[in-house]
Nucleic acid binder design. Sequence first.
DNA 1: CGAAAAATCATGCTTTTATAGGATTGATCT
DNA 2: AGATCAATCCTATAAAAGCATGATTTTTCG
Lengths: 205, 205
Amino acid sequence: MSVRILIVDDHPLVLEGLKSLLADVEEVQVVGTATNAIDAIAFLKSNEVDIAFLDINLPDISGIDLCKKVKDQFPEVKTLALSTFNERAYVSRMIQNGASGYLIKSSGKEDILEAIAQVQAGGYFMNVQFDQVTPATAPKTVPFLTRREKEVLVLIAEGLTNPQIAEQLFISVTTVNSHRQNLLIKFEVSNTASLIKLAAGLGLI
Amino acid sequence: MSVRILIVDDHPLVLEGLKSLLADVEEVQVVGTATNAIDAIAFLKSNEVDIAFLDINLPDISGIDLCKKVKDQFPEVKTLALSTFNERAYVSRMIQNGASGYLIKSSGKEDILEAIAQVQAGGYFMNVQFDQVTPATAPKTVPFLTRREKEVLVLIAEGLTNPQIAEQLFISVTTVNSHRQNLLIKFEVSNTASLIKLAAGLGLI
DNA sequence: CGAAAAATCATGCTTTTATAGGATTGATCT
DNA sequence: AGATCAATCCTATAAAAGCATGATTTTTCG
């Protein structure tokens, strides 16, 4: 089965460009497009979509807010931020709002397909280089995180303790702790400080 | 008439480097130097200065606050932020506080002269393109940290535990813990996760 | 459907952090 | 000379996090 894509961007050029670029790829199918947030939400209500490409600059609401709305109402839909620039601040906020990746519009076909593959598999994709990344955090690849792990990571970064996270997510403390341990393992660190530093450096929080 | 420069930086190396670099330039004259904010203000009270170079990290108050003070008390003095590359987070706030530009410390002579010329002419200079000014993440004062606190903070971020930090700094675990608690208080957080997230966001680690 | 992955929960134990209350020394500033 | 502050150290307790090991139930996917 092919990956179903929704593209949300107010620039017809980008829309058409992406569409035609993905037209001859078998594994991917652009099932819909929208030029604003309202249309995008409406489309998601009546169609099944795997990945939504969200432009950061939209006429009605910002892509960041739209991302949040999408994740709230359609948690199974994965989102990928589209932007013209390396806007670090936006990236981290998109990720905070549940986006699985960030794609600059000047990306080539390979990058785009790579992004789709990564995200569809539950991972992240990010092809932006924010100036210099600190050497300690740079060469690390972004580990593969599950939906729950991402949620827990964000809540840890917000300063919540395991009991608080458990309450927030309506699960037991031991479960939270499991996710937490998995995060440590996946990031190859041994405590929260390193975890947060790495995650911050990777723009995940 | 030459441009009168005041340099404020607590690193003697930077001070001397800049001074000697500008020594043989006719149009520019370093009329004073200061290693802290108090001295800087005092100097400005009794001397005429065209441009003040302000380091972002100063022992007494932050360069950001100093910038504001200078612009309040001596509006005719133009200010230029001095920063190392990993302190970009502060820079937008310097600009917000009235700075006319931003120079990374690794800048070459040409850059520096160009900056002086631009700023003296009433313009702005910036030799690093830091994406864009972040809209939402701006307000949050960088707490003043002592030398030891900075050291401890960095080591925490590197994933060291209190006992390991103690060993590294040749001090007792309880002392490390004291510094750690002070960091939590100064950043107004209650655990390591929040601390590291904030510090990372501010470019401190 | 059946296998794999994810999410859930548990027990037990050790280490680390967080919090609270001090106290002493040395340097700096007024 | 007195005040302030950084840095150092201490005791003690509670809370949280880290580590090991394992099990059950959903979800997801081929």
